[in-house]
Structures are given as structure tokens and as C-alpha cells.
Simulated assay, not measured.
Amino acid sequence: MTGSHTRERNEDIKNFLTHHRSRLNPEDYGFTLQQRRVKGLRREEVAQLAAVSVSWYTWLEQGRDISISPAALKRIGNVLQLSTTEQDYLDRLIFGAKNAPKPGAIPHEVKVMADALAPHPAFIRRANMDILYWNEAARSQIFDWSTIPEDDRNSLKLMFISDDYKQKIHHWELAAQHTIAAFRTYYAASNYAEDFGRVIDDLTARSEAFREMWHRQDVSKFGTGNKAIIDSQGKISHYTYSALEVESAPGIFLIFYLCRASEQP
């Protein structure tokens, strides 16, 4: 990992830990609310509750290169009331992602699979949400990615920079928050921070709404879920979706949408 990417990860660690301790009520832990300049627990209180030294926890928040055990990080996560997904995210920020080859070309058979899933929408993307391929059903029912520049064919980008895409998403703000949270989880799990960094940098420069949501530090998994799409006539279609990683091509995902049974033709 390059120096700039190390600094970015260190900043992610700092922001994540400070955000989550700011959410906590000191009284729930037996501390007074008096003489506090900021919300939540102080660093020394987190350290005390997690049975680590104050200086060590401070260095952790600063992203310093320190020795850390999974058990100590788990105790900190318990104090901060992290969910399982949030704890996994923090572990990956601290310990790094598992070694994996850099995603390459889409295997031909995966494209054939996407086409064979018609009339159901299906498309192929990378972990950083770059859209690589889609079938005709996805183009007609979800979005026509061919109408936008290749550099903007990214699910997270489209949430914020494409008015046409935003108008198709029912409950856009909730969907945008979920997409950011999933992107952040993929980011922590990847060895290729530059693929994510260029998306973050571009959106930070182009979207105030993204800048605000990105700093919320939400994380979630993307494996399955629900999405409601609004067509050109204003009709809302409800889908469940599944994201399947291609075993022969790590970092490449096939996304399959299934329309609610009562709405299928």
C-alpha cells in the first residue's frame, strides 16, 4: 500500500472510531455528563472500559503503526457497540484485507450467464461498483448505462451525479445511504484502495450530498436486498436483488434482480 493510501486508511480509522464513540451516552457507562466539550465517550473512557492504555488507544485512533491483537480490537468494538458488520469493517481497516488478485477481465461465461438470466435484469460490476456489463432486461428495466460516459458507469456515482438515475430510485435518500454503506464495506475489504479512491475523490468534488453522507461512517453488507425502480410512466416496480461474487474472478460480481411475483408479466 502506498504512502497516500496508508494515510487514507489512517484517516478512515480515526473518523470511524471518533464517530462511533461520539454516539454513546456516557451515563450508560457510569460517567457524568458534566464538564464535557464534545458528545460521547472520551478516549480515556474507551480505553478504561476496553482494558487498554490511554496512550495506546490514542495511537490507534491516530492510525499509528502499533501492535494490536484481535482480542483487544474486539473489546474496543464491544465498548463502541459495533454491529458484526461494523466490527468486520474495523478489523479490515486495522489488519488489512486478505490477499486477493486484482480483478481482471470478465470471464466470457459470466457475460453469457447475465444474458441467459433474461427476462430478469442482471449486470456485472466490480467491488468499487464500476458497471462492466448488463443484459437487455437491465437496460430496459433498471438503467441504460450506455447513455453516460464510461468513467461515470458506477452505481455509487450514479446515485449522486445522474438526475436520470436518481429519478428512477424510489426513496432515493435511503437507497443512497445503503449504497454508500456497502461501498465503504467493500473498500475496507479490498487490497486495491486506488480503485475506490478515484470514485471517492470524484464524488467528493462533484456532490455535496455525497460529502455529507460519506462522513456518517455507516457500513453494511450488500449481498441481498430490495429496491424499488420508477419507470418513465411513474410506475413503481419492486425487486429483490442478490450480489454473487464470481469464484474464478474475485472482485467481479453478478447482480441479479427479481421482480416481485405479483408484478411480473
Rank of each mutant, 00 (worst) to 15 (best):
L41I: 05
P250V: 04
I106L: 06
S67I: 06
M129A: 11
P149C: 11
K168C: 09
E11R: 14
W134N: 02
A71Y: 06
Y239P: 03
R125A: 04
A193N: 11
S55K: 02
S207Q: 03
L156A: 09
A249H: 04
Q87T: 13
P250R: 06
A261S: 14
L80E: 01
P103S: 08
A114F: 08
R153V: 02
T240V: 08
F183A: 05
D130V: 07
P119K: 07
S55C: 01
R42V: 12
D12A: 15
W134Q: 02
N226D: 10
D65F: 04
V199G: 01
W59K: 10
E208K: 05
S262G: 04
R211F: 00
L90I: 08
S248I: 14
I229G: 02
L73R: 02
W59N: 08
D91E: 13
E109A: 08
K111H: 04
P26L: 11
S140T: 13
L80H: 06
N10R: 15
C259A: 15
T6L: 14
A176F: 01
T18N: 15
V246G: 08
F222H: 12
Q217K: 10
L80T: 04
K98A: 15
T224L: 09
A189K: 12
M213I: 11
A50W: 02
T2H: 12
N128E: 12
A182L: 04
A127Y: 00
R260H: 14
R139V: 06
F123N: 06
E44I: 08
N135Y: 03
S4V: 10
W56K: 06
L117W: 10
G197T: 14
E136N: 09
S220R: 14
F196L: 12
A100F: 00
L117G: 09
T179V: 07
D115N: 15
A116G: 12
A50S: 15
F196C: 12
R184G: 05
P265Y: 00
M213P: 00
A205L: 11
T147N: 10
F256K: 09
I124Q: 10
E45G: 06
G40C: 07
A100V: 09
A243N: 14
V52M: 08
Y133K: 05
E136R: 06
Q81V: 05
A188E: 00
S232F: 11
D130F: 07
Q62Y: 03
F31W: 03
S22L: 06
L117S: 07
R64N: 06
D195G: 14
G30L: 12
L203P: 01
F222R: 11
R42L: 13
Q34D: 15
A175R: 09
G30P: 01
R125W: 04
D195L: 14
A205W: 00
T84E: 13
D144A: 05
S155P: 00
A50V: 03
A182K: 01
P107A: 09
S55M: 07
A175T: 06
Q141F: 13
L60T: 04
R7L: 15
S190M: 08
R36H: 02
H108V: 13
I142D: 00
K227Y: 07
N128W: 03
E44T: 07
W59R: 10
A176I: 03
P119D: 12
A188V: 03
K157R: 15
G251F: 01
